[in-house]
């Protein structure tokens, strides 16, 4: 009897130790403090998509998690395509593939997408996602997550005099405050319905303006390119209320026109 008790104890100890070494707490899926866009499951693998806020037109920071039966996969390769299906055709939008490493803040795979139009009668958005392991030797699965995109008026698509199509996105300040705010905008060129490369050498001349007060503000800093089609500057809002961000763009000495974002805070 003593031998049985000893045997059982050793067995459970070994089993417990083994189980701990295979699935620890870090491998379990946690619920992040983010807005959940949706998920799909294929052959036991699940992809969950998250965003910092409900998706809207313009720039959206996205996050992904991949797990198999509740156990997170490490370093999966995730391929993302935001796709708008309209009557008779579909198109993508500017986006960035998810990182191969988890981000420090949410411990998820981070990506971004710029939705160029809202969901509605014109069409609907979905995130097309494909996942495989690091060396294509193991799993591979695909699926879509349908999302509703609200209109934020933070993105402009326009055609230049040279018949080129561009996507201008106002990213920051996301929550404007009185005083000096970081300004971040992005410019992408639409080469095809699926291809939106960043514009790397545009020049911006912008002015914040209050139409109802008929004045602007001083000490603004024009955005300059910081990489991958993103431009950073500073904007000064000297009071709350209705403002316009008046942005004039030149590219290789071509005037791409003045574009106005309206905001109210």
């Amino acid at each position: 009897m003593k031998l049985f008790i000893l045997y059982t104890t050793i067995l459970f100890t070994i089993l417990f130790a083994v189980s701990c070494s295979e699935v620890n707490d870090n491998d379990l899926v946690n619920e992040p403090d983010l807005y959940k866009l949706g998920e799909f499951t294929d052959n036991g693998f699940t992809v969950e998509a998250w965003a910092e806020r409900p998706p809207s037109t313009g720039f959206n920071q996205l996050y992904f998690e991949v797990h198999e039966d509740g156990v997170r996969l490490d370093r999966p390769h995730i391929y993302l395509t935001p796709m708008m299906h309209m009557e008779g055709h579909s198109h993508a939008s500017p986006f960035d593939e998810p990182d191969h490493h988890r981000d420090d803040t949410h411990d998820l795979y981070k990506a971004w997408a710029i939705f160029t139009m809202p969901s509605g009668m014109m069409g609907s958005w979905e995130l097309q996602i494909t996942v495989h392991d690091e060396d294509h030797s193991g799993f591979e699965f695909s699926g879509v997550i349908e999302i509703e995109v609200e209109d934020s008026k933070r993105v402009k698509t326009f055609i230049s005099e040279n018949e080129e199509r561009y996507v201008l996105t106002w990213i920051e300040p996301a929550d404007p405050e009185t005083g000096l705010n970081d300004l971040k905008i992005a410019l992408h060129k639409r080469e095809s319905m699926m291809n939106f490369p960043p514009v790397l050498n545009a020049n911006f001349d912008f002015e914040p303006w209050m139409p109802s007060m008929d004045h602007g503000s001083g000490n603004n800093v024009n955005p300059i390119h910081e990489g991958n089609g993103f431009y950073s500057g500073q904007v000064n809002f000297n009071m709350t209320g209705d403002w316009e961000l008046r942005i004039r763009i030149t590219l290789d000495e071509e005037d791409l026109g003045e574009h106005i974002f309206e905001l109210n805070f």
Binding site: E177, G179, N219, N238
Partner: peptide
């Protein structure tokens, strides 16, 4: 707070 931000903006 907003006054400080305003003056920071006016006198960077």
């Amino acid at each position: 707070k907003s006054a400080i931000a305003t003056y920071r903006a006016e006198y960077p």
